[in-house]
Design a protein around this nucleic acid. Structure first.
Length: 751
DNA sequence: ATAGGGTTAG
């Protein structure tokens, strides 16, 4: 009967055959033919063979069941088990295959190899290596097929040493498929010298004209950031297929040479006449995302639609991510909505896209939608969700995400831990952040940076510095971000001497050239401390032209210290730099108001209006029982709006008794004094706090986040509210935390 | 043999 199975290679025919065989088989059972065991193997073998070819799990399981409940001839029994294990492997049922495999006393080399391959492809990789050792212990000699699989498992484990050991043990000359299998390991370990040795060996053995090997080699070089070597291999190859072209284009993207990637893509399509594959499109889309070039991305999208690749999930996900990274969140959301096959990657991409574009609430909503749709979150999903919680200071959502990560074994991942450090510190729980940090197995530079930044935004400059010293002692090299965190920490804590010291040390001792961001921190540090002239000179002596943000921080310092002359000068400077200094009009107007120059303040407002600038609306958020409540100034849309307003009026009475008077200089609208008091009273942060007081139990601290810096009147008012209500209130604005207790803020009134 | 989403700073 076997020849039947061999002749029908077409899947449909196999299905038909199976049902034919299966019926025959069950009829035999029914009429008791199975009792003559001599007949069985001949009928079961072709059946299993057919199951194998058409991957028919149901029938295979039936036969399995039959074999377990009936005694077959002992020799044939193991042959049938061998075949059955192969069927299960072919159907990706590795666990079942293993159970059958373990029953067989002396599995054949072929089955050992297949079993190892199954683990090398699907994991757990360690299982493949253990099996390999088991194979040696059982006295079975590995064949040339064994090694590529074991090496692939080593590469999955990112374990070069085991790979090499096995490589040496086998003592034979590696063939080209062995080399191809070991290359990913080399790349992952960034072991360039070993990669070169393998390359040299391939040259000596004349393997280098093999496209498969060449592609593997060029990919290895690219992953080791050796783009010129990769290109040389590409150029030398006689025959190049689309996989090879795609690999080379992807190599350029990996090495941040977007222009070269695009040029090679054009060459591929126009000159060589190759057709791009979904993988090629993916690489080009990642290139346009990195270039922040929406027009290229759009063109690729058009091509993807025409070629039908738009429906490919991988291409779709890259498109989605491209739109999000180019800041076009509307297109990303629209595309996501109409995607036919959304998977974990799609959800992770849309969640991170929302968060990166400032729609963290929407990101959490998408996460919720993901759970409802039954798609399982994985590590990257949670790494996208946690920053959403950070942005919103959503403590309960953050804690849930942490719990979920622990339960699913994600928490040991350093990306998760890093995101957790950031989440806990931005949610005001610095102790938890430190606990996560301390418990980490391997801390990378991001872990240290996140922790230093955490101390900085809580106004704990001394702690930030001591952690930085500890980092140096541990031999971890700080990077440019470390210094941004460190300098801003010094700035918030008024540590001028330390800040100056580290600013100069970073280029002298650490070889890190200060960027614009570092100069912003320094201007901020000096200005905030009242050293306005020094800050001004510092900016003028910068090695490159200061931008709006640098001047803006000096202007903010002028506002704190009420320095009109310098403020006017700086403001002119900012206006000369173009239309970016939107928020700075507010600062200048505030300076005039603060010293009673109302006309000048009004003029600035008129100027602002004439130039068509609009201050972005201030929003504040507070989380109550896991629900995020958002407020804008004067907001009446909240269901409990009336109570909130009443509460604020009530608080106003208490505040006034303690000497509060509304600082109308912070109101930019041209209205009556009493109206100004109303406007200030209904600022978004005050609304959020009032709602927090109403909804949270008196013992609970109130945590509010704001999308702008907290306003001066609110800062003064919240201090009094904390005194009147005897509650701990925390406001996190764009630059730091303000912890209000008993009428005092820990920022020391400099922010 | 190539291959989609992810953490810190601004």
């Amino acid at each position: 009967m076997l020849w039947w199975a061999r002749r029908f290679r077409d899947q449909q025919a196999h299905k038909a055959l199976i049902s034919f065989l299966y019926k025959q088989f069950t009829t035999q059972l029914a009429i008791g033919v199975h009792q003559s065991s001599a007949h069985q193997a001949s009928s079961l073998f072709p059946l299993l063979e057919a199951c194998h070819r058409s991957k028919s799990i149901y029938e295979a399981k039936k036969i399995h069941q039959y074999l377990l409940t009936n005694n077959t001839h002992i020799e044939e029994r193991w042959q049938l088990f061998e075949k059955l294990a192969q069927v299960y492997i072919a159907c990706d049922l590795v666990g079942l295959a293993r159970r059958v495999f373990d029953e067989i006393p002396k599995p054949s080399v072929i089955l050992w190899n297949l079993m190892i391959r199954a683990y090398a492809w699907n994991g757990p990789f360690q299982e493949a290596i253990d099996l390999y050792h088991g194979m040696l212990n059982a006295g079975v000699r590995p064949t040339k097929f064994t090694f590529p699989f074991v090496l692939k498992a080593c590469s999955g484990l990112q374990d070069v040493e085991v790979g090499q050991e096995i490589h040496e043990q086998k003592g034979t000359c590696p063939n080209s498929s062995t080399i191809v299998a070991v290359l990913p390991t080399v790349a992952q370990a960034n072991a360039l010298s070993q990669g070169k040795a393998i390359h040299g060996y391939s040259v000596r053995r004349n393997f280098c004209n093999d496209v498969v090997l060449g592609t593997g080699l060029l990919d290895m070089y690219a992953k080791c950031q050796c783009i010129s070597y990769a290109r040389r291999i590409f150029d030398i190859l006689d025959v190049r297929n689309e996989i090879c072209w795609s690999a080379m284009i992807g190599a350029y993207v990996m090495c941040d040479s977007m222009r070269d990637a695009l040029a090679l893509f054009v060459e591929m399509v126009c000159k060589s006449g190759m057709k791009p594959t979904p993988v090629t499109l993916g690489s080009i889309l990642r290139a346009s995302a990195k270039l922040n070039d929406l027009s290229i991305g759009r063109q690729v999208h058009c091509y993807a639609i025409k070629s039908g690749f738009e429906l490919d999930t991988m291409v779709g996900n890259t498109l989605l991510s491209m739109y999000a990274k180019c800041g076009n969140i509307d297109n990303a959301a629209r595309f996501f909505a109409k995607m036919m096959s959304k998977d974990t990657v799609s959800y992770s991409a849309i969640i991170s896209g929302c968060v990166q574009n400032g729609y963290a609430e929407e990101g959490l909503l998408k996460f919720h939608q993901m759970q409802l749709s039954g798609i399982e979150p994985d590590v990257p999903t949670m790494v996208s969700v946690l920053p959403a919680c950070s942005h919103l200071a959503a403590r309960q959502h953050g804690a849930c995400a942490h719990g979920y990560s622990i339960v699913h074994g994600f928490a040991i991942d350093s990306l998760i831990s890093n995101a957790l450090i950031d989440m806990y510190s931005k949610c005001g729980n610095l102790n938890f952040a430190r606990k996560v940090f301390d418990m980490m197995y391997v801390r990378d530079i991001i872990s240290w940076n996140a922790m230093i930044v955490g101390y900085g935004i809580h106004g704990l400059g001394v702690e930030a510095l001591s952690l930085f010293n500890y980092m140096n002692a541990a031999g971890i090299k700080p990077d440019d971000v470390t210094f941004i965190g460190l300098l801003s920490a010094c700035s918030h804590s008024g540590l001028v001497t330390e800040g100056k010291h580290w600013f100069y040390a970073m280029s002298q001792n650490f070889n890190i050239i200060p960027r614009m961001e570092h100069y912003i921190c320094m201007a901020d540090l000096l200005g905030r401390a009242g050293l306005l002239d020094e800050a001004h000179i510092f900016i003028q002596r910068m090695p490159f032209e200061a931008d709006v943000r640098v001047w803006g921080s000096l202007l903010a310092a002028c506002r704190i210290h009420n320095n009109i002359e310098l403020g006017e000068e700086v403001s002119k400077k900012i206006q000369g730099l173009g239309p970016e200094g939107t928020g700075n009009f507010v600062l200048l107007s505030n300076i005039y108001s603060a010293v009673g120059k109302w006309d000048d303040a009004a003029n600035v407002r008129i100027m602002q209006k004439n130039q068509g600038f609009k201050k972005s609306p201030g929003c504040s958020w507070v989380e109550v029982n896991g629900v995020i409540h958002g407020f804008v100034g004067g907001d009446q849309s909240h269901p409990q709006s009336t109570q909130i307003h009443e509460k604020l009026e009530e608080l106003l009475v208490g505040m006034k008794r303690l000497g509060y008077h509304a600082e109308s200089g912070f109101v930019l609208q041209d209205v009556e004094e009493e109206e100004k008091e109303r406007i200030l009273l209904y600022h978004s942060e005050k609304l959020a706090i009032a709602f927090g007081i109403l909804s949270l139990s008196p013992r609970k601290p109130i945590l509010v986040t704001k999308n702008l810096r907290v306003c001066g009147d609110c800062h003064a008012a919240i201090k009094l509210i904390s005194l009147v209500t005897k509650r701990r209130i925390t406001v996190r604005d764009t630059s730091r935390f303000h912890h209000f207790t008993d009428g005092i803020c820990n920022c020391g009134d400099f922010w």
